Computed example of a mutant assay.
Amino acid sequence: MKLTEKQKNCPYCHDPFPSVPLFGGNILLRIAEDGGEYVLNVECNGDPEDVGILSFATDGQAIIGCPFCRRPLSEEEE
């Protein structure tokens, strides 16, 4: 697949996957790869109650593309 410049330079979906701060940095969202499958992980960066329902709804959710640039995560880059 031919990637766009945005996808080639996306800071969130290339290994090593950085954490993305949300809500003033209280919650961190990170893409993780586990045996060829990609998931979203929600991490607490302070009070565990800050994560709340967001963790329940998204933590460990399997994804097929980057939520930021839409690059398919399981395809090889050209």
Results as ranks from 00 to 15, higher is better:
D50H: 08
I31F: 03
H14M: 07
C69E: 04
A32W: 00
N45R: 08
L22Y: 00
C10S: 13
V42L: 12
E75W: 09
V51M: 11
A62C: 05
I63F: 07
I63K: 03
G24E: 09
Y38Q: 04
L73E: 05
A32R: 12
G65L: 06
L28E: 07
L3W: 10
N26K: 15
G52Y: 07
N26E: 10
L22V: 05
Y38V: 07
N41P: 01
K8P: 00
C13M: 12
I27C: 03
D59A: 07
G36V: 01
P72K: 04
C66W: 04
A32E: 11
A62V: 13
F23V: 08
V39P: 00
S74L: 00
K2M: 06
P21Y: 00
L3P: 01
E5W: 12
S74P: 00
I64D: 14
M1V: 05
K6G: 12
E49L: 13
F68L: 09
P11T: 06
L29A: 14
L22E: 00
I63Y: 01
P72G: 05
F17G: 01
A32V: 14
V51G: 01
N41Q: 04
C44Q: 12
I64R: 10
C44A: 14
G60P: 12
D34R: 05
L22D: 03
C66Y: 03
C44G: 15
C69Q: 09
C13P: 02
V51D: 02
E37R: 13
A32Y: 08
D47R: 08
V42M: 06
F56H: 02
G65S: 13
G60Y: 09
L73W: 04
P67Q: 06
P21F: 14
S74Y: 11
C10P: 08
I63C: 01
L3D: 14
L29M: 14
V51T: 10
S55L: 03
L54G: 02
P72A: 09
V51E: 01
E5A: 14
